[in-house]
Design a protein around this nucleic acid. Structure first.
Lengths: 205, 205
DNA sequence: TGCCTATCGCAACTCGAAGTTGCGATGATC
DNA sequence: GATCATCGCAACTTCGAGTTGCGATAGGCA
């Protein structure tokens, strides 16, 4: 009953599990959460319906498992020597992720009604909380180099970098490309250099 | 049981329609499109299930009608005399809209699985295409005043203004406030003044 | 005021998908 | 090659989408 794999016999179990998870993600990206049927998942995975229900209690648990498994956007943090180079690198990595087939699948799934599954919203939030916090080191380095004021908020900078890319993908619907990444970098750079993200700059209205 | 107070002869047709549309929007915002049941909508509207099916062919048509009816974000375009003032005004208006109860309802509905209904995605796209194009006049005025280079792309500017607000609302989950609007304005201003949105500035990587 | 008709309420359907159960078949491991 | 967990299969129950026929009613109009 427990989804954990504490059992010793590790025969065909993992293979089935992987097939079902892949099929679920594909169905999720193709038809959305609202139209997701267990029968379709089973058919695509080459597995019977009951097999799925024996492993996962219900649809929510299945989808939750899939997303929990795949949500891991590892932004490679480079050290090019300049803030502009680091930001450009980050922006292009993010673009590459959301433009890749698995990235697109996760992305569309995360922003469907599946987000209402308990735990998914939190996971999503963590994703965009932890990523920028990690990526903030490029800002710290820029501060050390004297490129930015010392009281610049790293998380705000990274968020500003991601926002335009996210906006283009989510609202406009066009898959972002290198041009999008470049413009996002330039926007962020201009804002950061003008001191928008300084602590003293806030609280004014 | 029903919302009552129907003591005035107005014709029950439009009244029923309005009640159903309101109930649908409320259910949509509360439980999402995937969990939307016609029975629940009918119960909330104080109307019977068949009444809904007589007026709308199916669930998709109903939800499509609701969203088509309410999607109308009229950004009030002010003329404060400076680009900073105009942008701040626009940003605050957008924040006010997405933070208001109807705005939140529409917003959550538009970014659920309801977006897969044919026509909704197009409507959404038009919303974020037409709005920035209209709001672009504040950029044109800034160019006339000499605040910005002549080849600045107005739509790109407005998009950059909206993106951070949209990001905070959609990804982070916090309802944006005046501070968010102010920071979005400053980011946009810094980027525009540094020439990021100039036509000559593009195409470089 | 009182008739007339479009509209609504209601119950009783069909259909498809969620989720369950018991049993027989199968495949990995020792 | 025997064992036992796991899978396939069919036959359920439940629930919501969507449909139909009929009786009830409220608004418009004379």
């Amino acid at each position: 009953m427990p989804s954990a794999e504490g059992a010793r016999p590790v025969g065909r179990g993992p293979k089935v599990r992987a097939a079902v998870l892949d099929a679920t993600l594909a169905e999720l990206a193709e038809n959305g959460y609202a139209a997701l049927t267990i029968d379709n998942v089973a058919r695509r995975a080459g597995v019977h319906k009951t097999t799925i229900y024996r492993r996962w209690p219900d649809r929510e648990a299945l989808v939750g498992d899939v997303l929990g498994e795949h949500i891991a956007m590892e932004l490679p943090i480079a050290d090019t020597g300049s803030l502009a180079g680091d930001l450009q690198h980050l922006a292009e990595a993010f673009v590459a992720w959301v433009a890749s087939p698995p990235g697109r699948m996760i992305f569309t799934a995360i922003y469907s009604d599946a987000a209402r599954i308990p735990g998914i919203a939190e996971t999503r939030r963590e994703l965009f909380e932890y990523g920028p916090r990690r990526a903030g080191v490029v800002v710290d380095r820029a501060i050390k180099r004297g490129e930015l004021p010392a009281d610049t908020d790293p998380v705000a900078v990274i968020r500003t970098l991601i926002a335009p890319i996210y906006f283009q993908l989510s609202v406009i619907g066009d898959p972002p490309d290198k041009t999008t990444a470049t413009q996002a970098t330039q926007i962020t750079l201009a804002a950061a250099q003008s001191g928008v993200f300084r602590a003293s700059h806030r609280q004014q209205s």
